[in-house]
């Protein structure tokens, strides 16, 4: 199926993004992963998410290129190489063991449970059901999302501010 091909594409570019030494190439490879995710959303019948993902991906690409352009990368290999690798693989193995127990409980692919969706579908007359859920049923979620977004913007402004108040006088 197409979705498997796109997922394999995403995995290849994710490996490239993690392993390439040049930072700018790495950022561009991560952006390719996001583009693959956008196509995967289209195939999985989620057009709202595809549009949002495309916009967010472009913004992330611009920000990370701003962070990495004209920066050199002194790559060092010393330090606790063996300990770091072993601890990383231990963490990944713990995560895989959790996956092994979780896979038994998951529903089969293509047959969602949809216990609540009938109610969402009956009680709204909005054309786009995703917007109906976001605005009519989960509006507090959307409010908290906007709050988090603005808190992050305030944090960025506080971190990037160069001149303190004392130096202006």
């Amino acid at each position: 199926m197409e979705i498997h091909l796109i997922l394999i594409f995403m995995i290849i570019f994710a490996l490239a993004a993690i392993e390439i030494k040049d930072l700018l190439s790495s950022v561009v490879a991560m952006s390719a992963v996001g583009l693959g995710l956008c196509f995967a959303f289209l195939i999985l019948k989620a057009p709202n998410l595809a549009i949002t993902q495309l916009v967010v991906e472009l913004l992330c690409l611009i920000l990370l290129i701003r962070a990495t352009i004209n920066k050199d990368l002194p790559l060092v290999k010393d330090g606790r190489w063996f300990f770091n690798t072993i601890s990383t693989f231990v963490f990944v193995a713990v995560f895989l063991s959790f996956i092994y127990f979780a896979l038994k409980e998951l529903p089969r692919f293509g047959e969602p449970l949809m216990r609540l969706s009938q109610q969402y579908f009956d009680r709204t007359a909005v054309g786009n059901t995703v917007n109906a859920i976001t605005v009519n049923f989960r509006h507090l979620d959307a409010l908290a999302e906007i709050a988090v977004l603005f808190a992050a913007i305030i944090g960025v402004l506080a971190v990037m501010r160069k001149v303190g108040r004392i130096h202006e006088e």
């Binding site: 019948k45 989620a46 709202n48 998410l49 949002t52 969602p112 109906a132 976001t134 989960r138």
Partner: peptide
Amino acid sequence: MVDPLPQAVVLT
């Protein structure tokens, strides 16, 4: 149709 609830959550 596909389930709209995860789509609304993932949008956030």
